[in-house]
Design a protein around this nucleic acid. Structure first.
Lengths: 219, 219, 219, 219
DNA sequence: GATGAATGAGGATTCATTCAT
DNA sequence: TATGAATGAATCCTCATTCAT
């Protein structure tokens, strides 16, 4: 409230940008957290910007000072989520050591992602398939593209000889399987949830096994 | 389809109104077609009853003469879709002859369903996962339950010794895989689409193979 | 009227927003006036929120920024009316000096209320009996209860020995008489109106006389 | 169903009008009963013509074959109610034998009317004061006028010397008191209802006593 | 930056009434 | 007559977004 006021001079232009930005950052984080909560509670489509602002404890106007529209909130949220994911579980997305058995590679990757996604349920809301096949909202599109890219990179190291188109397709399929598994995981708890994690791994492993059959330790 | 026979009572009430109701029946069909188009264009959530009425070329009031709300439209649409599916591809959902190789069984089932679903893209809109895991709209719930039930029945014949809970879980996973595949299939065309159908089959086959390993012709 | 004092805590939060809220306060008043006009013109039941907004010269959305629904408008309007009434004619509802002759007490009370109600004809709309006996809308209920309570308090001082149930019943009857009289008063003008005020007083006086017969100055 | 059909001749034009009218009469009665039920349940304003038709088990179109609009239904209902009232309790509204004590006259009149009105709660819905003082709906207006006229006639015999304007005013006041009492009576049951009937009588008696003070047996 | 008021088009739904059959 | 389909304006209410302060 009294950050820049009551100083009586109009010349403090060198220091303030820092402050400003810091404050702005805090606001943005606050808004994104609120958005995450609202998206989780109501889903992306049903989430209203007013509700997000309310949840963040700020006015609608303030929200629009930082984001031009609802989409932008989701996009930024997705970006940050990806950053956070990379920081927390970076290696899970890194090219795999060819010596690692596929089961282990997939098992640990799924474990990490599932853990991240159950900790950050927004992810589901943002990855949630488009209402109309083929046409995704900007926000989803962006996140989706990024994620597919990472999976492609991962797969490239597993399927060295495959054509790019095949890698891309396989990546899409893997993501599809993962999202389907995630939905089921999030919809259950306890032992049942664990069972669905297990199933998701199995589906992926069995799907990929023949595609990467010529790897070390599997022949 | 059958106006007066459903209950099997030989009395056959409602003979005079048949002509009158014919118009209504047509309107209902027309409205459901319009709804299907709108659901496909905008997705279920974003579809508005006014848009459906407009698409059907009638006034909002007319829509509400036949359906109490959007939900009811989706439910009826789902019902009819299931009926149509059963009539057209009934045997695809029937218990499988144990002599059929799994690949063939799944291959033909996926072919049939994919064909049906590309012919009736609404199905995807109606099966489209809930915005929030666990909480589905009535319309989705109903269709989902029916479909899962059918898959369970199918699987029961493939996994004779399995615990019901496992069958249920497997059914959910299969449906998840299928929906993920369908989304990809609908998002592509031509050769790419065919490739995705191939992938979907592979995922399912490889996933189910070990679970039904004791079948004839597979040992 | 008093912005920050209601709760009596010396901390006086909300100092900065005062200016901001001033506009809102004005809008609320404006909306309530508009609502009063519309209620008087069309009656409470037939009044539409859009009509109220239009009358106030604002958009529907603005109305809903301040009131969640029609009911709330009526309730707030009733509250303000009661406040205003208490401030303007507070003593008319205060326990009566036992020395005052009944005629005078009732005469002056009716005069005051009639004056207030002809100045604020909304009151009638808000007090207007329920469409179905026994079932009142919240808005009416609230105002009704308050008013009956006041009358009970007044009567309690006039009928010291009476059972509470009798006092309550008498209060309801008095209010009924008053409302019936008010309807007639509002439906007429000039001399005829005055005559109806006279009649209303007479009805009340004659009804209450035997019930408070043991008062000073009347024996 | 088979009233005029399957006779194969188009010449039966003399007898049918009777039949027609008879059937029409039945329909009208049926609709009016339904309307009465709906008016009682929801109040006049909230009652919908569709609801009335449904309650009567006919289509909306049929309703409009007999009544041009909602108002007309209420008017006709009010008329019939008045007829029935006159037939059942005709003498209660007849000029009073000057020898009858006022208490008895009013007591029996109120008893009769209250009995009629609790038996026919529609009456309340139709007599229910206008939403806006002075402006009544046609239906109410008509019934109101008739009722006031009867009361005037009754009072004329009690207040032989009074000016017509005074009689009219007194009649309005009496009706107001009665309606207020009726509302309270209908809102309560059992002993409390009886008590309110008692109060209504008292109010009327005490109000009228001085106005008819020079009657036999009261001086 | 921050606030909260303001917008107005759009959503679901209802209803008195009319019309074709 | 009777039916039930059809209408379309009107209802309440929401929401993304903008604006004055």
């Amino acid at each position: 409230m009294s950050d820049t006021t009551k100083k009586g001079d109009g010349t403090t232009k060198e220091q303030q940008p820092r402050r400003r930005q810091a404050r702005g950052e805090r606001r943005i984080a606050q808004l994104l957290h609120a958005a995450a909560r609202v998206f989780c509670t109501t889903g992306y489509t049903a989430a209203s910007t007013n509700a997000i602002a309310r949840e963040a404890g700020v006015s609608p106007g303030t929200l629009y000072q930082f984001f031009p529209n609802k989409e932008a909130i989701a996009i930024e949220l997705g970006d940050r989520l990806m950053h956070e994911m990379r920081e927390a579980y970076g290696e899970a997305l890194a090219p795999v050591d060819p010596a690692t058995p596929l089961e282990e590679a997939i098992g640990s990757a799924v474990d990490r992602f599932m853990a991240f996604n159950t900790d950050h349920p927004v992810f589901f809301a943002l990855m949630h398939g488009p209402d109309i096949p083929g046409r995704m909202a900007e926000a989803h599109e962006q996140l989706h593209t990024t994620v597919v890219g990472r999976i492609e990179a991962l797969l490239a190291s597993l399927m060295p000889g495959a054509a790019p188109a095949d890698v891309t397709r396989t990546a899409h399929v893997c993501l599809g399987i993962y999202k389907a598994g995630l939905e089921l995981v999030l919809a259950h708890e306890g032992a049942e949830r664990a069972a669905y994690i297990r199933e998701t791994k199995d589906v992926l492993i069995r799907y990929l096994e023949p595609l990467v059959g010529d790897r070390l330790g599997r022949a």
